[in-house]
Simulated assay, not measured.
Amino acid sequence: MDHVILNRAASERVRHFGPRVDIVREGDKPKDVHLILSGWACRYKQLEDGRRQVVSFFLPGDICDINVFILREMDHSIGTITPVSIADLPHEFFDHVAARHPRIVAAFWWETLVDAAIQREWTMNLGQRTALERTAHLLCEIWLRLRVAGLTRGDSCDFPLTQADLADAAGLSKVHVNRTLQELRANGLIVLKGRTLSVPDLDRLMRAGLFNPNYLHMEHEGQQLDAATTDAAVG
């Protein structure tokens, strides 16, 4: 959501977090909406015995829970993966946008609907895809989201996720994730070196993950964001 009015709001209330800390915890009273300016974060649920399920990843430019003001308390936690900078967007900001910038409101609705579509696809991942398909599918999604945000370099991108992160997102054990990554490497579908992921042939990886990018609705993103940018500039 990279446009003038968001940048203006984001510059006023910025906080910085280290890696592997919570930005907000389940049970907290929500105050602001968080815009990820830099770094990677995740939304997760955790059982009392420490078992964790990652239910989404946040990348630079993502907004966490646009409608969070409706809730009395958070029903999930948001934690950092890398060092993260966020902008806190208050309720008043959204009141102002709703009153003066209807095209930005439409862009917010678009983002909410895409988030819901991603959640449906993650449910399909956990319920129906094999371990290799789940992992390949998740890597395809992250790769495409990074590419749309201009955060890929050729066929490579930064990739700070650990095998434990992938396990928590894919509903697999770390041992199973390790085996699956080895299989993807052996088939020439990915190259993982340190904190860098390379995808030599995205089409092959998509086929391995039974990946159809339609749920990301990327064909509409530019249209929505361009409209939002224009609206903000004249507003």
Rank of each mutant, 00 (worst) to 15 (best):
D2G: 01
N7T: 04
R8I: 15
R8L: 15
R13N: 15
V14Q: 15
V14H: 11
V14A: 03
V14W: 12
R15S: 13
H16F: 13
H16S: 15
P19Q: 10
P19E: 15
V21M: 09
D22H: 13
V24Y: 04
R25I: 13
G27Y: 12
D28S: 05
K31N: 11
V33L: 01
H34N: 09
H34M: 09
L35W: 09
I36Y: 00
L37E: 03
L37D: 00
S38Y: 01
G39N: 07
C42G: 03
K45F: 10
L47E: 11
D49W: 06
R51A: 07
R52G: 00
R52E: 15
R52S: 06
Q53V: 11
F57R: 05
P60Q: 05
G61W: 00
I63D: 02
I63A: 02
D65H: 07
I66N: 00
I66M: 02
I70G: 05
R72V: 02
E73Y: 14
M74E: 09
I78F: 12
I78C: 08
T80R: 01
T82D: 10
I86M: 12
L89Y: 05
H91Y: 14
F93Y: 09
H96M: 14
H96K: 10
R103N: 13
I104Y: 04
A106Y: 02
A106N: 07
F108R: 02
W109Q: 07
L113Y: 10
V114P: 02
V114R: 11
V114C: 04
D115G: 10
A117D: 14
W122N: 00
L126D: 03
T130M: 01
T135D: 05
T135Y: 04
A136R: 00
E141F: 02
L144P: 02
L144N: 01
R145W: 07
L146K: 15
G150I: 04
T152Y: 04
S156N: 05
D158T: 12
D158V: 13
D158M: 07
L161H: 01
T162G: 07
D165P: 02
A167M: 02
A167R: 06
A169F: 13
A169S: 09
A170W: 03
G171E: 02
L172G: 04
S173V: 01
V175Q: 12
H176R: 13
V177D: 06
V177W: 07
R179G: 02
L181N: 06
Q182L: 12
Q182W: 06
G194S: 07
G194W: 11
L197Y: 09
P200M: 08
D201Q: 12
L202P: 07
L202M: 14
R204L: 13
R204Q: 14
R207W: 10
L210H: 11
L216G: 04
H217Y: 13
E219P: 03
G222M: 14
Q224V: 08
L225A: 04
D226I: 06
D226L: 13
T230G: 09
A232R: 01
V234I: 14
V234A: 05
